[in-house]
Simulated assay, not measured.
Amino acid sequence: MIITWFIRALVVLFPFLASSALAVEITDVAGRTVDIDLPAKRVIVGEARQVHVIAALRGDRTFDTIVGWRDDLLKKDPDSYQAYVERFPEIANLPQFGYVPQGNFDLETAITLSPDVITLNLEAAKVAKESGFEDKAAAAGIKVVYLDFRIDPDKNTERSIDILGKLFGASDKAETFKTYRKAQIARVTDRLAVVKDLKRPNVFIERSPGISGEDRCCRTFGPYNFGAMVDQAGGQNIADGIIGTTFGDLNPEQLIVSDPDQVIVTGSNWAAESDINQFVAVGRGADLKAARERLANLMKRTPFPEVKAVRTGQVHAVWHQFYGAPYEFIPIQQFAKWFHPELFADLDPEATFIEFHQKFLPVTYKPGYFVSLEKGLN
């Protein structure tokens, strides 16, 4: 009789036992060992643009365990924010937080939400440690985990996807996502690898012109991030060997000397924080006519009228937010078409992005992520 009762009790309790969190040791991209119960039950996403990854892992259940997030998606990528609010109206009421390196992340309010974990970007690590943010969070029983999709994506992207997969109980989907991503990049790199004497066009990629400050050139990318995407797509980043960090400023005279064959600028909808509003607002559902006009105006700055790419109409804009999410297979495919149009005539990056939305994301696709100048327009 006792045995029968015990068996029945196990049957009742098994679903709860099976779904309970398990203490696991993970190593984040800052090299810190973190002991955490997985999957996490309550998460504050300290960089809201990480939702581009979380959504690919969790789909319709993206926000089930998110109890707060940073305000950067609303400010820096409002078109994507709107897409997620339309799909998940309740997230309009999610508590929003500031940026740790700027000292305006309200940790006291975060503690009241009883999160298990706060995810932060790697660039926040130094300030978070030196300011005592990590220690205060630990004292409140909150784990801090660092991710990186921006500083050194080649090194840290897959590790960051794996970590998010563990935190959100979606490790299988993380593997599927990584496999898809690598296969889409290989559609470009494998084809380039068999081309003898590949002629790589010289490319200048400008980081977020027209967003703030003086209307001047030339903030760009070193061998990481968009700079690496240029290389993978079969181009030659003119900042290679000059700028060794993720971002840096190129001397305008160097731009004239390099005389790039292609110019690409990054843009997004930065209306919420721009002081000069001359940026190219590409992104989900963008007005491409208006974006093209902005792009043409940016090419009137010194020294762009003297550059070959501008004279020949090889000028483009790409959605800036690709630089912080492992969706880089899309710009790599689009860059390849711009750099080697005949070799990649059959490649359709937009079709790839539509497919990706259908396979992985809970929001619908809208075009607008790229724009090019028409020859003669500038």
Rank of each mutant, 00 (worst) to 15 (best):
H340V: 03
F339Y: 06
E328L: 05
K359A: 12
E350C: 06
K359H: 13
Y327W: 15
K366F: 10
L343V: 00
F353R: 02
K359Y: 15
P367W: 01
G368E: 02
I332A: 00
K337M: 03
K366L: 14
K359C: 07
G368F: 00
Q358E: 15
H357D: 13
F335H: 00
P362N: 05
Q358A: 13
T352E: 13
Y327V: 05
Q358R: 15
A351I: 14
L343H: 06
F339V: 11
I354A: 01
E350Q: 13
P331E: 11
E328P: 02
L347E: 03
P341R: 07
V371P: 00
K337S: 08
P331Q: 04
F370V: 14
Y365M: 06
K337Y: 01
I354Q: 12
Q333M: 06
H340P: 09
P341H: 00
F356E: 08
D346R: 01
S372V: 10
E342H: 03
P349G: 11
E355W: 05
S372N: 13
H340F: 02
P367G: 04
D346I: 09
A351G: 13
K366G: 13
H357E: 14
F335N: 10
S372K: 08
Q358Y: 05
A336G: 10
T352S: 06
E355G: 01
Y365P: 08
V363K: 05
E328R: 00
P331I: 12
Y327F: 05
E355F: 01
K337Q: 08
T364W: 07
I330T: 13
A336F: 01
I332W: 02
L343D: 15
F339I: 10
D348E: 14
Y369Q: 15
E328D: 15
Q334T: 07
F360Q: 07
F335S: 04
Y327H: 10
E342A: 12
E350R: 11
V371C: 04
F356D: 09
L347P: 03
E328T: 08
L361E: 09
F360K: 09
L343Y: 00
D348Q: 12
L347N: 07
D348A: 04
E342V: 10
V371D: 07
Q333S: 14
A336Y: 01
G368V: 08
P362R: 07
D348Y: 02
T364P: 05
Q334Y: 00
Y365W: 14
K337P: 10
E342W: 09
F344G: 06
H357G: 14
V363A: 03
V371E: 11
L347F: 01
F339G: 12
A351F: 08
V363I: 15
